[in-house]
Design a protein around this nucleic acid. Structure first.
Lengths: 319, 319
DNA sequence: GGATATGGTGTTAACGGTAACAGGTTTAAG
DNA sequence: CTTAAACCTGTTACCGTTAACACCATATCC
């Protein structure tokens, strides 16, 4: 391993100058800078992360708290993790997963928290390092999330554009901001078109949505589209409709929300609000690193636009 | 942050003694040891990872290479990651994900590699730090994996025990050890019972298995069980059988392999060979840490027994 | 009883990097 | 032309930990 000293010798300067070229390049003459850069290249210099961490009192570790039960949303996370990890890797940060609320053994430079519920608020506030949430909140935490309202707006607009006369919203019965936002997108769009709204809510399990459709089958009118707050619920709706040999997408449309895995295995494949999970991971990481660099200053919020992934569960102009 | 020196002062010894209590306790008198332990507890001492890493020329980072396309096996990985991460965390190691073959920027103390294909052999061999594979291989790499042969043995035995007269194996057409092992478990069991074997192979996509069943439907005899090399294929088989309103599980049985997510969303839920993915992650990590501690010495292989998760896609004595 | 091992502890010098300060040179101002 | 400010670069000390060695007791041997 080549060190600062090696580079310094090769470039005929002191260690300190080399260090400055890396961290405060504006303080060094251009002439020296180029010769230092050359030396670094020739020797294939890579800074020693541990040494830097030691002197800066950093750990180069970011902890990712996954507070919700992973099994319920599992496929989701891999993309998030990949995004976070990729971005952190660029700055030589490493990731540590924390799934239980076990004690914070070993330090870290910051936290990314996902699946926060309102009850977690208290202990999150006590954390002594910068925190960024993945997922909307109405508190003062910095966060990244999909633009949930935009997502259901897009879904509802699309359903109407495809000519479905009734649009029913199948929501998740949790009192969390992301759900409110998704419902809001639906409501706003329906009101804009002066149409009546109808919202049903269930725990996020496919069989509940399925049972609902089964119980309501006789009252369902054709030409209805179900805009769902998750792919899970949409999956259940579709399964139930299939049981009655309903004509999807001509008589009934189904639109999910998430776009991770489940929409792919449904038959027909689900039209869904595709969240940019990977990019959200990248953004979370970026925001956290910025916050660390700026000594914990608030970084605000970042909402990324989802895309509507169109598949066989809704009518489609273009087919 | 309390340091070694703080502890040393409190216990009236030198830093070195404290360090020895941690790393070479056998070299320290019991009397001193206890007083050092007390001091550590009172001051809530946590070793500084960066300092330790610096002096030991370690990074405390493990890289996880995910070589296969994640989208195909996605739900799988979260459990693996959690297992690995949990175990690494205990020893203050952090994880770095590497999904593209991008350059090995920044060092690490070891690698865990998953999704290795035969073509990756060459560059893997060149890695300069200890490597442990997740997944069978017939080369000299240390690895952890499910006992694949045992898995299909269990599945096939179970199918026969439930009285299915024909058992057909639906395999994945890749030339990889895990597939050979799964086929072997099926073959051995059938031969043991002196029954004829039948193996079909497809790429690991549900629609291919689905199309196969559809094309063969007229020739399929009731009382047949399909033992599949993946839940994906099993899912396809089941979907096709459902299309014909076949009686699952009475006329046809379906058994998958993996037990991550997909088996849960199938209707009826899939009986499947449940891999202990989380534990495999833990084992991988443990093996790698042992290898690092022993300066890269081979650690052999570790095959964990899967369990048969019984659900509605097969007949069941107990129901 | 003096030489020789043995076990337990402290001292010193690194590991690779950076902040803070010191010192030298150039530029600008009066 | 002097003096102060601005600019660059080097020196020193330290971040927290450990290996290697030095040292001093005590136990062991002939």
């Amino acid at each position: 391993m080549t060190t600062l000293s090696d580079v310094a010798k090769k470039a005929n300067v002191s260690k300190m100058t080399v260090s400055r070229v890396i961290n405060h390049p504006e303080q060094v003459r251009d002439e020296l800078k180029t010769s230092v850069f050359n030396a670094m290249r020739e020797l294939d210099y890579r800074p020693n992360v541990a040494a830097k961490a030691l002197v800066n009192n950093r750990t180069q570790i970011i902890k990712l708290f996954i507070l919700e039960d992973m099994d319920t949303t599992e496929p989701y996370y891999m993309n998030l993790l990949t995004g976070i990890s990729k971005e952190l890797g660029k700055e030589q940060y490493a990731l540590q997963l924390v799934t239980e609320h076990h004690f914070d053994i070993g330090g870290c430079d910051g936290y990314i928290v996902t699946g926060m519920r309102h009850s977690d608020y208290e202990w999150l506030q006590r954390l002594e390092r910068p925190v960024v949430l993945f997922g909307e909140n109405r508190l003062e935490f910095d966060y990244c999330d999909t633009d949930n309202t935009l997502g259901t707006k897009m879904a509802t607009e699309y359903a109407l554009k495809q000519g479905y006369q009734q649009v029913i919203f199948i929501g998740i019965n949790v009192k969390e901001p992301f759900e409110y936002s998704r419902e809001a997108g639906y409501m706003m769009t329906m009101q804009k078109h002066q149409l009546p709204t109808e919202i049903k809510r269930f725990s996020n399990h496919s069989h509940l949505a399925m049972e609902y459709i089964q119980s309501q089958w006789s009252q369902l009118k054709p030409n209805t589209c179900f805009v769902c707050a998750s792919d899970r619920l949409a999956f259940g709706v579709e399964k139930a409709l299939n049981l009655f040999n309903a004509d999807i997408p001509n008589d009934f449309g189904v639109i999910g929300f998430d776009g991770v895995f489940l929409n792919q295995v449904a038959t027909p494949k689900l039209t869904t609000v595709q969240q940019p999970i990977f990019e959200l991971g990248v953004q979370c990481a970026r925001m956290l690193l910025a916050k660390i660099a700026k000594d914990g200053q608030p970084q605000g919020i970042e909402q990324l636009a989802p895309t509507l992934s169109i598949a066989g569960s809704t009518r489609n102009d273009n087919l």
